[in-house]
Simulated scan of single mutants.
Amino acid sequence: MNLGSPGHVNTKAPPIGMSRDSEEFRTSSHRLAQFARSVDDENPRHLAGEFAPPVFSHVPVMQSMVEVLDKLTGDFVLHGEHDFFFHAPIVPGQRLFTASTLTSVRGTRAGTTFVIRSETVTHDGKAVCTQYSTCLVRGEPSDAAHGETPPARPVIAKTQGASAQYGLTPDQTRRYADAARDYSAYTIDPAIAAKAGFPAPIVHGMCTLSFAGRAVVDDHCGGQTPRLKRLGCRFAHPLFLTPGQSITVDHWAGQDGLVGFEASDSAGNIVIKNGYAQVSS
């Protein structure tokens, strides 16, 4: 995904159904543990590489998802929302394959949104994860609407819950980039971030969501990652890697295994809104 000027996207005849397949992705305990360390996860089973942290599920889809986006636009794409459905845990020794498909194009006041569905399966066809990425290209307002509507997001009324605060290290985005193989320049190079108008490198959205996922797994799943069946949110504001930066995750239990959450930075800016999770018993 490239930095650029506001996009010019053809919303009259978008290629709904366009799909790209990923190359085989092999998992290992080393790779899973590296990802856990990159987001400062303290879950012993994650650090041992027995199970992947939940947001690791995005790593195998990146190749095919970005290939779809690159066919749509060469401009800067904002990751607006993400929605994971977890069917089976990612463990060492798997051979994973992903197909990413453009399922929806919608015009908004801010530009054009794309929804890409990515389905990851094992080499023998067992479902591992389905996820929906909602991305925005800024541009002319539009009321265009094509394709299917993504799954409805649950709304969990905020109640008294708990908070978890995590400090970010100066090398946070570099460590995450190495673990996720996501080297977007504005996340790791202060000069390029400044050229794009940002005060500091932007923490990857999936890194930001990883901290929220950690709070959910630790406090609502008893540390048992396979109990997490769904995780999603809207990215409301960039999390900048400034000195002393931290992220605070407020989370609360709803009904029927639902969990709500939101996250803010050290200045009080809400960086994640409308967060939700589904936990099995």
Results as ranks from 00 to 15, higher is better:
A110V: 02
G244L: 05
G4T: 01
F261K: 02
V115R: 12
P238S: 07
D219P: 01
I192P: 01
E42L: 14
F261D: 08
Q224P: 00
T242E: 10
I272V: 08
R214T: 13
K273G: 01
E23R: 14
I192W: 12
R37C: 07
T98G: 13
G197V: 04
S57F: 14
P238V: 09
Q94N: 12
P226D: 05
G111L: 10
D40K: 10
S22F: 10
G125L: 05
Q165T: 15
S281R: 06
G125A: 07
G74V: 03
P150R: 02
D250E: 06
F51E: 11
G139P: 07
N269T: 02
M62V: 14
Y276K: 00
H251F: 11
A194S: 15
F35L: 07
T27D: 12
H30A: 14
V9P: 06
I90W: 13
F97M: 13
T11G: 01
K12C: 00
A263K: 07
M18K: 13
F240V: 06
G74K: 03
P238T: 01
A200T: 03
G232L: 04
K126N: 03
H220R: 02
I156H: 00
T248M: 01
E50Q: 13
Y166I: 11
H204K: 09
A194Y: 05
D171K: 11
P60S: 13
T173L: 04
N2Q: 08
V203G: 06
S281F: 02
R181L: 15
D70Q: 11
V61S: 15
A110K: 15
A127G: 06
T27I: 11
G107H: 12
G232D: 02
Q160H: 09
R181W: 15
C129T: 15
L228Q: 12
F51G: 03
A88K: 12
H146T: 03
T112P: 04
A110P: 07
C129H: 13
Q94H: 13
V9M: 01
L78F: 14
T134L: 01
S29N: 10
T149W: 05
A164D: 01
T130K: 07
A277M: 08
P243N: 03
S29A: 14
A193P: 02
S19C: 01
